[in-house]
Amino acid sequence: MENHETILETKKLNLFYGDKQALIDVDLSVYKNHVTALIGPSGCGKSTLIRCFNRMNDLVSDCRIEGQVIYHDQNLYSPAVDVVHMRKKIGMVFQQPNPFPKSIYDNVAYGPRVHGIKDKKILDGIVEKSLMQAALWDEVHDRLDDPAMGLSGGQQQRLCIARTLAVEPEIILMDEPCSALDPIATAKIESLIDDLKKEYTVIIVTHSMSQASRVSDFTGFMYLGKMIEFGETEKIFTSPDEELTNNYITGRFG
């Protein structure tokens, strides 16, 4: 574990929604070009944690955060950080596919356009490359101008991944990306995640333990806002150190 380069690290992260504490002293290291899975029962704070990594929690009123999230030696929560610029480097794929009500092409080109690319040829290249990376190109290359809302759920989710890739982030956050999808679409996304880690760092929240064991290199188990155990996925799922983890992965609760 020591030879891996750490790209993102939380230090004593505490988060409150009003009076309610949702994260308690979370310490976590995320390694570059690996897939890290966060698992745990509903309400354990795993989605809250992943939303700290690109400050989507800023959009929740009365949400208060203490502690640090370190990315390339900089604290994401320091006042000097430009949230917008940061989110360009740490992208996010949401639980429900949320394509914009635009064409397939415009969905993928949205990010690059927002970041100032106007040249049609460059945009074409980015769109093609991103859709290929998201394994969607073959299905949609002849109808890029169709509305994205006409795609199936699984296609929409891969489109959202392509949209995120088009911005060329370093880290991709996925918040239960398959929970709204059928098994075949899920399998496609999972194999996609495997491809993506060559180029990107992926953090995925999932409620499916089998999914975590299939796609991730490292797994963190959370319970009631605390990071109970973190380690290589194989170890977590075969011989966890903590009793609580063992109970969860063997299905005794959750």
């Binding site: 917008v84 429900q96 949320n98 009500p101 927002v114």
Partner: peptide, 27 residues
């Protein structure tokens, strides 16, 4: 206009006004 669209755009690093102009206003 659902918030998921706003979040989708913000998560791509768009600014608030870019999000409003390009994603929120048209629907």
């Amino acid at each position: 206009v659902p918030d998921s669209l706003r979040h989708g755009s913000l998560a791509l690093g768009a600014t608030k006004w870019q999000t409003i102009r390009k994603v929120v206003l048209s629907p």
